[in-house]
Each structure stands twice: as structure tokens, then as C-alpha cells.
Simulated scan of single mutants.
Amino acid sequence: MKIKFYGYNAFLIESGDKLLAIDPGALFFYWFRFTTLLPKSKWQDITHIFITHGDPDHYWHADRVAKISNAPVICNKTMLRNVNGKVLALGPRAKGVAFTTEFKKIRTLSFDETIEIDGMTVTGVKVTHGELVLRIGPFTTIVKPGLEERIGWGSIGFDINVNGKRILNLGDTLLHEQEWKKFVEPDVLMIPIGGKTARNTMDEEEAIQAVKAIKPKLVIPCHYNCPGLFSKSLNPADEEKFKQGVGALGVQCSIMRAGDTIDICGE
């Protein structure tokens, strides 16, 4: 198994005949206008698309990747709604909470629900997207998830069992220490650590608590030090401090930069 990281929560996982994409979102930073995180050269080879929620950095290109790859999309049931007799998904580039997009292939699940798809089992994991604190110069704006807010819409984590390996991806979430104890000992845990300033996810200390509860074999911290808007890091974190804390628990931690690949042996 090979795991390649593209920043934020964007990953490609290659295992056997499968190429799993997690959160094919976009980057919006200075003069870049929502450029893709996952390279377009990889889109056609993707076999399955996992969406943790509807924020642009996680979801912006989902329909485009699905169209080119013909891959099924796996997401929370709340990402879909019946509109005039048609089942439509939250529009990746629609303004606000608008259900405008029809996917050719889509599988949905809820928290603690397990589905089987193409030889994999996938279980929905309880997560909660936190409020987002944005600071631009002297101004501070706080956006809170809610019925009328796009932020964090459809949030869910995934416990993916593929070819005998378990990958646990938590998307953007606050700490759910007790609920996550049922997902113990995955081979890989992908966990956000950049919530100290932005507050939309766990910070380093909270993520270490989660690692202690989940007891993974390998941890990959993500969704921190991400560029966005006019900041080089909307959600700063000290990844080395996190790695030391994880190491003190006897758990391996891999710090990945955008473009890095790691091999998971023993498949």
C-alpha cells in the first residue's frame, strides 16, 4: 500500500487495483483561484472518492473527479437531498447550502454504519466540525456550523478496510475521545492537528488524546499549516511537538509534506 499526501486532508491511497482519493478539494491562496489539490493527471485513475464534508478545500472538485474517473463517491447521507424528485448532492461550487449536483455513482452512510463496496468495508465515524476563526489584518470573523451555514456540512470520518489494512481518516473534527475507542488499532490514522488558532479542528494536544484512545500503528497529522485566503498558514501547528507526544505513547508518527509518499508494508 502506498499513501501520498497533497496537503490539507487530500490523500491518494494505492492498494492492489484500487486508487482511493480522500477529499479532492482545492487551494485558495493569494492569486490562486481554487486550484486542485489532487493533480489532474491522477483523476482518471481514481477508483473511489471519499468526501469527509462539503468545505471547498475538501470537496471543490469532487464532481469533476467523479466524471473523469467514473468512480463512486462515498459520503455522509446528509450530503444528499431529494429536490423535485431527483436525488442531488450539495453543489461543490454552489453558494450556501444548495443541492444542485447529480453524481452518477454515489454511496452514503451515517455514523457507525458499515457498507461494503468493491471488496472494501467502510464504516462512518462520528466527527464534529468546529467553528472557524478567520483573522484578516485587524479583523476577526467567526463562522459556526449550522442549518444555514455551508461550513462543515456533511461531516463524517471513515474507517476504511481495504486488502486487510485499516485506514482511519477523521476529516476536520473536534475531539470525540470516547466515541473513537470503538475504532481502536487501525493501521493508519490520519488526524487534523491545526485547531489551536482556527478552532475548526483539534489542536496538537487534543489530537494526542485521540491517538491515546485509538492506539493506531501509524499516525499521519494533517490539516495544519495550510495556506488560504491571504495567510500562509490559517491553522498553524507544531508538528514536531505532536510527533514527540505521539512517540511518548509508543506510536509511530510520519510527518508528510505535500507530495510525500510512504509505503505501508505487510499487505
Rank of each mutant, 00 (worst) to 15 (best):
G247I: 01
T121R: 11
E206C: 07
P92E: 12
A237M: 04
T140K: 15
F99C: 06
D238F: 14
L170P: 05
A210Y: 02
A62I: 14
T201S: 15
G54L: 03
L38T: 05
L249F: 07
R33E: 15
T114L: 07
R135G: 00
I151V: 13
Q44P: 01
L27R: 11
C222W: 00
I115W: 02
N161W: 01
E240M: 11
F28D: 13
D23G: 11
Y30I: 01
M202W: 07
E239P: 01
V83K: 11
L132P: 00
S155H: 15
V251W: 06
T141E: 10
K77T: 08
C226P: 00
D118C: 08
L218C: 09
L19M: 07
H48W: 04
R33L: 14
N9T: 10
P56D: 12
H223M: 02
D63T: 07
E240A: 10
S110L: 02
V251S: 06
K182E: 04
M256L: 15
G195S: 10
T47P: 06
C226E: 01
G171C: 03
K105E: 13
V125M: 02
K2E: 13
T101F: 06
V184P: 00
D203Y: 02
A71G: 01
G124A: 03
D63S: 10
F158D: 15
E240V: 12
Y224Q: 04
E131K: 10
P236I: 15
T197R: 12
W60P: 01
Q44G: 15
D159I: 00
F99S: 07
E102I: 02
C222H: 15
D63M: 03
V246Y: 01
L134S: 12
K42M: 11
H61E: 08
F32T: 05
M79I: 12
E204I: 03
P216E: 08
E149P: 01
G259P: 06
Y6A: 08
G124Y: 00
I255Q: 15
T121S: 15
C222T: 11
L12N: 14
E149V: 07
E205P: 01
I13F: 12
W43V: 01
N161Q: 13
P92W: 11
